[in-house]
Each structure stands twice: as C-alpha cells, then as structure tokens.
C-alpha cells in the first residue's frame, strides 16, 4: 500500500520581501485508493499542498514522502522522472499539448517512459474509451469542449499507471453537466480500478462526492473528515 506522508510541511513564498506562509505545518497521510477532496478558502494553500506532494515544488520545512521516496533528496531532473513514473496531474487548464491529438496526448507520457508503440496505442485507446471519448481520439484539444479536454487530461494522467492522481480544481472551468460527468468517471475509476484521486475544489457538488474531505485554513489542516457511504 503506497502512502503520501507530509510532516510539518511549511512553504513560504517571497521569503525576502513580504513572506507568505502558504503552508504552515501540514501533517497529512494519504493512502492508495482514496478519493479525497482538499478544500478551503481561496489562498488557504490547496494548490501549494498539491504541488508539494506531487513533487512540483519543494517544502521549506518538513518532510514529504511519496511511496517511500523522499522528495527533498531529489534533484530537479530526478523529480521530473519521479513525477513521470508515480504522479498523474490534472490541472485546472492547459493540461493538454495543443499540437497533439487526444490519443497522442495520452500516449505522450508513455512515450517518455519508452513504452513500446503497440502498448502505448492500445492503452491510450482503452483509456480514452474509459473516459467516453472513443469517437474523439484524433481530435486536437482545440476541437474538444472543456469537459472533454479534462477527460482527456484524466486519461493522460492515468496512462503511465501512476500511484496517485493529483487534480487541482479540475472542474473549475466546467459547467455543471461536464462537472458531473467528469466526477462520474473519476469515481468509477476509483471504485473499479482502485485509482487514487486527490483533488482540490471550491465546488460544493464536488465536495459532496468525496469520501474524505481535508479542509485547509491558513496553510493548516483544520478538519479531516472521512465519510462512509457511497460516492
């Protein structure tokens, strides 16, 4: 069982000018298989936390361990490789490579992993089918709706078989129908494939479907609530 552990994580922006403590001692443990929402007011540190546990950013204090890897000990290039193998990202926007088709976008990370062509192709098609885009495989991002783009982004994040998928406000730019649709897909992947999702959100409809809700306030975990029952 792989785990993300943060201990006393502090992240300070602008340490020289007007320091901003984006994270102020976060202790958190996320286990494989979770479907967890990080919530909190704007500026509470959600994005910063996701970046730190995803190895996109380094904490100023404290420890971050992802699946037994110590993030702090890695060089920039090692971090890139680490993310490639272990973390799938879904951002709020600008997820996709505009010059590549949906299928090529999904294949891209597998290509970086040097997977054989046949495997890449089959898995990309399988994943796009899983997110309901079997008829959009050869479309470029500009030809897809926002919701469709985010679904491609989820498929792309899944492609390298990462341990965790981190999504920073994945539904922020979507209408309610696309939001529901994307969440259905994520929830199903979590149920059926045991894919771990950690996502930040402001949206109450999204929060309602999470099985664990971590609330940040001023860079600290204020509440951490595990809900029983169906997603």
């Amino acid at each position: 069982m792989k785990v993300i552990t943060t201990k006393g994580v502090v992240k300070i922006y602008n340490p020289d000018k007007i320091p901003v403590k984006a994270l102020n001692g976060v202790d958190l443990e996320i286990t494989e298989g979770e479907f967890t929402a990080i919530v909190g007011p704007s500026g509470s540190g959600k994005t910063t936390l996701l970046n730190v546990i995803g190895g996109l950013d380094r904490p100023d204090e404290g420890d971050v361990e992802v699946g037994g890897h110590d993030i702090d000990a890695m060089s920039d290039n090692q971090l890139i490789d680490f993310r490639k193998e272990h973390i799938g990202f879904v951002f709020q926007a600008y997820n996709l490579i505009p010059v590549l088709t949906a299928r090529e976008n999904v294949e891209f990370v597998m290509l970086l992993q040097n997977r054989p062509k046949k495997e890449r192709r089959e898995r990309a098609e399988e994943l796009l089918r899983a997110v309901g885009l079997e008829d959009k495989m050869d479309k470029r991002p500009s030809e897809l709706s926002g919701g469709q783009q985010q679904r491609v982004a989820v498929a792309r994040a899944l492609a390298p078989k990462p341990d965790f998928i981190l999504a920073d406000e994945p539904t922020a730019n979507l209408d309610s129908k696309s939001t529901a649709n994307l969440l259905d897909i994520m929830a199903r992947l979590n149920e059926e494939e045991k894919i771990t999702f950690v996502f930040s959100t402001h949206d109450q409809r999204v929060i309602d479907r999470a099985r664990r809700v971590v609330t940040l306030v001023d860079g600290k975990v204020a509440t951490d609530e595990v809900r029983e029952g169906k997603v």
């Binding site: 996109l56 290039n77 890139i80 490639k84 951002f91 490579i97 891209f108 990370v109 970086l112």
Partner: peptide, 16 residues
C-alpha cells in the same frame, strides 16, 4: 511558458 511548464510537470525532462 504554461505549456512548457505543463510538459515538465508531467515528466518531460529538460534535455527533451
């Protein structure tokens, strides 16, 4: 810039 950041975020290394 955003796109290049995204490429590096998802695992495209600096050499590439």
């Amino acid at each position: 810039i955003k796109e290049l950041g995204m490429l590096m975020a998802i695992g495209m290394n600096k050499l590439k």
